[in-house]
Design a protein around this nucleic acid. Sequence first.
DNA 1: ATGGGTGCAAATGCTTTGCAAGTAC
DNA 2: GTACTTGCAAAGCATTTGCACCCAT
Lengths: 143, 143
Amino acid sequence: MQSAQSVFRNFLRSRRLKFTSERQAIVQTVEKFSRPFEAEELLLQLRQFNHRISKATVYRTLKHLVDARLLNPVFFGAGRQSYYDFRGGGRDHDHLVDVETGMILPFENAQIDALCDQIAVRLGYHALSHRFQIIGRRTNSPR
Amino acid sequence: MQSAQSVFRNFLRSRRLKFTSERQAIVQTVEKFSRPFEAEELLLQLRQFNHRISKATVYRTLKHLVDARLLNPVFFGAGRQSYYDFRGGGRDHDHLVDVETGMILPFENAQIDALCDQIAVRLGYHALSHRFQIIGRRTNSPR
DNA sequence: ATGGGTGCAAATGCTTTGCAAGTAC
DNA sequence: GTACTTGCAAAGCATTTGCACCCAT
């Protein structure tokens, strides 16, 4: 199990792209998020650690991180902006969104992949991946 | 089982909103789509039937149709724009996206709701709804 | 040395909004 | 009569891009 940083470095090398100090700061910051984050949040986090990286570079690097399969882009209902979910080499997971607070809870479920395969096969397809979110209300949540 | 039009009319009445000719044309057009559509497609369709409705009105009405639960907003991977999926009173369904062509196939699966409930309960939640997409490749699809 | 990278500002593309005039109730 | 609606054009907002200069390899 390698660090996100070395995974990224190898990915970049394989495409003859460069491992700059901006990209290094971004991977390191990205892997500290314990929940899906927006580009803007990442930018703020970088600023807090005195990295003055432009928004353009952040967006360009996010794309590479998605290509490198270190991040998964996720769209939650409301806003139009994308969230990025760090796949820390850990198993894939999906999310439950708290309808009251917008809080995001990750969960893993072994049955989902099997279900995807089953459904895809019936349609004459082979499942490659999926997007799955549950919208829920906390039990005993007021109202 | 009522028509989408009367569902919408009742919804509007309940909120003291008006059932204008623009809104009538939009519900009627919307329910003819057999797959998720974009705002722009709806606009084109309206134009084809000689309805000169502004983009602003289309967007405003789409919002009401979502509130009325006649449409479900769906976000597919790539673009940032929303798709709208007509819930013709039929049962809820999800989608498989063809990774090659972008084609969208709807499917129904009875196990999904049970799975959502099961997962939500474990997290101390009650499942209200879900979003689920499978990304797949056609079996025997060239490469 | 050189092909890719960076910041900046302007551009993009979907969606929303302010406003003045029109219309369903 | 009076809210609510409409169309238009302008504004918003997340993201992308053109460009001149910079730097990892």
